[in-house]
C-alpha cells in the first residue's frame, strides 16, 4: 500500500466537498446499486463489504450514513460512491463518540477532524433509487409530506436539534403505531404505519430504506415490507455479536439482503485480540 499522505487526503476531501456542494438534498440514482447502512469506522468490515459486494466502481454503492465513531479506523473510505448524512456526521456527536479523539490521537491536532466535519455539512440528506425507493439515514418527518419539501431544506450546516433535517437523521419507525409520536425523551419522533403508507402514496414510491438502528439479524423489514432497516456494522462495538447486511437493489426493484459476519482481520487487529485469552472478552482487572 502506498504511504499515507495526509495533505493529499485533505486535498481530496476539499475536492469532495466541492462535488457534494452541487448535489441536491435529494439525489436520484439508478439500480443496480448496493445499499450500505451504519459502518461506524469498522474498517476491516468495510473491506469485507467490498469483498462480498464487489469493488467500486464495478459495483455502485449508496451509503446511508454513520461512517465514523466507535470503530478503530474511521479515516479511510472510498470515493465514487453516493454518501448520505447520518446523525454521526456532526461536530457535536463526533466530539463525544470517538472520532474527534481518534483524529487528535492519530494526527496530533484537531485539524483533520475540522476538515472532515466541515465536509459532513455538505453531505446530502436523501437518495431516491429509480424514482421508487426513498433512502434516508433515520426516517420520516412530520414537516415533510412530499420530497420536494426536502429539496428546500438548508442542509449546509451542523445537524440541528429540531426541524426536518433533525427528523430525517434521527427518527425511528414504530410498528405498533399509526401516526407520529413524540418520544418520552421530550424531543424526537417515531413514525407509524399510516405515516409510511401516506408518504409512499404521496410521492408515488414503493419502499423506504433506512439505517440507524442496530439489529441482531443485520436487517429488519417492517410495515408489510414497505420499510427496511439495513445495518452494516457486524459485531457492533466489537461486542454485540450481531450479523450485518448490505442490500442489493436490482433494476426492476428486486431487493436482496446479503448478510455477513465480522471480518477475520478483526481477530488479529481489533480490540478483542488483546482480550482473546479470557473468553469473557476482557483482560482481568482488579476493579474495586
Amino acid at each position: 500500500m502506498a504511504p499515507f499522505d495526509l495533505d493529499a487526503c485533505i486535498q481530496q476531501l476539499l475536492h469532495k466537498q466541492e462535488v457534494l456542494m452541487r448535489e441536491s438534498n435529494v439525489v436520484h440514482v439508478s439500480a443496480p446499486v448496493t445499499v450500505v447502512g451504519d459502518i461506524h469506522g469498522q474498517f476491516y468490515d468495510l473491506i469485507e463489504i467490498f469483498r462480498i459486494g464487489g469493488y467500486a466502481p464495478y459495483t455502485n454503492y449508496l451509503f446511508l450514513g454513520d461512517y465514523v465513531d466507535r470503530g478503530l479506523f474511521s479515516l479511510r473510505y472510498p470515493d465514487r460512491v453516493q454518501l448520505i448524512r447520518g446523525n454521526h456526521e456532526s461536530r457535536a456527536v463526533t466530539q463525544t463518540y470517538g472520532f474527534y479523539t481518534e483524529c487528535v490521537r492519530k494526527y496530533g491536532s484537531s485539524r483533520v477532524w475540522t476538515y472532515f466535519t466541515d465536509m459532513f455539512d455538505f453531505l446530502t440528506l436523501s437518495v431516491v433509487i429509480d424514482d421508487k425507493i426513498f433512502c434516508v439515514h433515520g426516517g420520516l418527518s412530520p414537516s415533510i409530506h412530499s420530497i420536494d419539501q426536502i429539496k428546500v431544506v438548508d442542509r449546509f450546516r451542523e445537524i440541528p436539534h429540531e426541524g426536518p433535517m433533525a427528523d430525517l437523521v434521527w427518527s425511528d419507525p414504530d410498528p405498533e403505531k399509526e401516526d407520529f409520536a413524540i418520544s418520552p425523551r421530550g424531543a424526537g419522533y417515531t413514525f407509524g404505519s399510516g405515516v409510511v403508507y401516506k408518504f409512499l402514496e404521496t410521492n408515488g414510491m414503493t419502499h423506504i430504506l433506512r439505517a440507524h438502528q442496530l439489529c441482531m439479524e443485520g436487517y429488519a423489514s417492517l410495515f408489510d415490507n414497505h420499510l427496511s432497516t439495513v445495518w452494516s456494522a457486524p459485531n457492533y462495538c466489537y461486542r454485540c455479536g450481531n450479523s450485518a447486511s448490505i442490500l442489493e437493489v436490482s433494476p426492476g426493484g428486486k431487493m436482496y439482503f446479503n448478510v455477513f459476519e465480522a471480518a477475520p482481520e478483526n481477530e488479529r487487529d481489533g480490540p478483542s485480540q488483546q482480550a482473546a485469552q479470557s473468553a469473557g472478552g476482557k483482560l482481568p482487572e482488579y476493579f474495586l
Binding site: 429540531e162 401516526d179 409520536a181 418520552p184 421530550g186 424531543a187 417515531t190
Partner: peptide
C-alpha cells in the same frame, strides 16, 4: 433541549403545521 424543541414544534411562531400526533 426539550423545551426549545417542543416550542419550535408547537409555538405560535412554528412555521410547520403538524399532522396528527399521538402521545407515546
Amino acid at each position: 433541549y426539550a423545551d426549545t424543541w417542543l416550542k419550535s414544534r408547537t409555538g405560535a411562531d412554528s412555521q410547520i403545521p403538524l399532522p396528527q400526533m399521538v402521545a407515546t
